[in-house]
């Protein structure tokens, strides 16, 4: 933790992330207007009363950005938690049970991973048919589960064969309990690192999906949806793209910096390590 604080990058990223988090969580109190206020002041320029201008419904764009920030971040976090959980389950089962279960699971996971996330998410969204929070989380999770699963599988296999596990087993401790006690805790830090790098990509992926009409619904917008709605007015009200777009960019930068900082601290070798990897 101390090292984390020392890293300039992580500290910078951390400050950005915390500020944005606070602003979004406190949205109902800090937002100057309610998003339920449809005024007749449509597409107003940024001014003292409306810092980010108003959107095509006459809503205050700043308030909208704050409110949807909560939506965006909670959606992204929930996606991470769900996909991490399912990824852990798949990975541990795959690595621990082995055999055909492992082979088939790995094949499916690798199949999904070798396909662009964007296209997998589109496919899943298309399959769900409804465009809402649940399907969005589902779609993005499908792209992330294999990534978590592969990491966990790789970590489980050596642990399965480790001596202390065999010894404990001989003492009659349940294998699953052992796994839970000894393998999973060791994975907490790498998981945090991975999550911190996936969070910004979830936000960006959602933005692209929104642009294609497969993202968050307009009645509960995310930042991505707001920017893509604003895109329709890019030439008459560019602030509807530029302000929320910058918010996305700043948030993504913040998370990236924080993620890199954490990675440096956790495993200084990872960063910039030159690996003359041999091809298998």
């Amino acid at each position: 933790m101390k090292r984390l604080l020392k890293s300039k990058m992580a500290a910078g990223g951390g400050i950005i992330v915390i500020l944005i988090l606070i602003a979004c969580v406190l949205a109902p109190w800090v937002a100057p207007y309610s998003v339920k206020d449809f005024t007749d002041d449509l597409l107003a320029r940024p001014s003292a009363t409306h810092l980010f201008g108003t959107d095509s419904f006459g809503r205050d764009a700043l308030s909208l950005v704050l409110h949807s920030g909560l939506e965006t971040l909670s959606m992204s976090l929930l996606t991470l938690v769900i996909s991490a959980f399912l990824g852990i389950v798949c990975g541990v089962v795959s690595g621990y049970v082995g055999g055909w279960t492992d082979r088939i699971l790995s094949m499916v996971m690798q199949g999904i991973m070798s396909f662009p996330s964007m296209m997998v998410a589109l496919l899943v969204m298309g399959i769900f048919g409804t465009i809402g929070r649940a399907s969005l989380i589902g779609a993005i999770s499908v792209t992330l589960i294999p990534r978590f699963s592969m990491i966990l599988r790789g970590a489980t296999i050596p642990a399965r064969d480790a001596e202390y596990v065999t010894a404990a087993q001989a003492l009659g401790v349940s294998r699953w309990r052992l796994l839970w006690r000894h393998v999973v805790p060791n994975l907490v830090t790498p998981m945090i690192v991975v999550c911190s790098t996936y969070l910004p990509s979830i936000i960006l992926l959602e933005a692209s999906l929104s642009f294609l009409g497969f993202g968050a619904p307009p009645d509960a917008p995310t930042w991505g949806r707001i920017v893509s709605e604003g895109g329709k007015y890019f030439r008459i009200a560019p602030w509807l793209v530029l302000f929320p777009g910058s918010v996305i960019a700043v948030t993504v930068i913040g998370f990236n910096l924080l993620g890199e900082g954490i990675r440096d601290v956790v495993d200084p070798r990872v960063r910039g390590k030159l690996t003359a990897r041999s091809v298998r």
Binding site: L204, G231, V241, I253
Partner: peptide, 18 residues
Amino acid sequence: CMVFLSIPGFVLGYLLIF
């Protein structure tokens, strides 16, 4: 570089066209 990484793709496209 960080900024280019962090802008949604379509916004970058709109900006380039503009």
